[in-house]
Amino acid sequence: MRFIVLLVTALGVAGCWGDPVSQSSGCHAWVACIRALDDVADAGEPANLDRFVEGGFCWNNPSLAEGCISACDRGLARLRERNDVLPEGCKP
């Protein structure tokens, strides 16, 4: 029994399980910026950004969330840096 408890604890610590977390402000902003750029470009069909939105897979556990938060923060910084004309939805 102690062995089972130990294994389950180890997996939990490893980040395989964990409480869901809320969408980060950075991912909220990155999604909004992509949508705004799409509107400007008249991109038509919206991009599938499901994993990044509130309740998306990114927020299933802290380990996944950590990667998504970094990804959105870097993605947003790059969008702001590389688009000469930023729509309102992309501005800080």
């Binding site: 980040g15 069909e45 380990s63 970094s70 993605g75």
Partner: peptide, 20 residues
């Protein structure tokens, strides 16, 4: 990395939108 149980250097994740 919690599956391989190893440390890695990372480029840092970047969110991108792949084309249709």
């Amino acid at each position: 990395e919690s599956v391989m149980r190893r440390f890695y250097w990372t480029s840092g994740p970047l969110a991108v939108v792949l084309p249709k």
